[in-house]
Amino acid sequence: MTASVTKPRPGGGEDNAAAPVIELTVTAADRRVARYAAAAIVLTIAEAALPSPLPGVKPGLANIVTLIVLWRHGWREAVWVTLLRVLAGSLLVGQFLAPGFFLSLTGALLSLAVLALAAWLPRRAFGPVSLSLLAAFAHIAGQLLLVRLWLVPHDGVFHLAPVFASAALVFGIVNGLIAAKILEENKS
């Protein structure tokens, strides 16, 4: 988004000249980010309604949106969409600034960092499934680290790592396939 302060209108009266008008120029990219973020937020909320056998094990359907944005429009827009989703999603679910919010933020940040590197992989060989898996593992690694450092300061939490890693493997593949399918069907 670009903000620009326009000069006082030349024909205006004296009092108009004192108040410069701030105009926000909405670019096509802004609209796109907003639309994708809205889709991701819907998925987050739908997912929050699903019961989970273990806290932290979730399909992470909103990451499908992140993958699609990354694939089509690059990493910068994926970051925007993801962070907007984490923020607005937590506000809507009532988790803002609760531990769950910091967990998803840490997971999102680490997986975005990994995706920044993974985006350099040659696309001919590595498709959305690769990106999805790498992001899923990064997500779970970030969350486990935060839990270890902050919520449960004991190495005992790492006993759960295989469970989380298995979930990341399964949901990473499934989400990656869904993203690949959507990208395949909507080639532009």
């Binding site: 499934v129 790492f158 990341a168």
Partner: peptide
């Protein structure tokens, strides 16, 4: 929809998960 590298990443991921079980389960 899977590309060659995807199989590689999946295999490495599966192996990593497999290895993590005995190592971490016992604490």
């Amino acid at each position: 929809l899977l590309r060659p590298g995807d199989w590689l990443v999946m295999a490495v991921g599966l192996a990593g998960v497999g290895v993590s079980f005995p190592l971490l389960w016992h604490g």
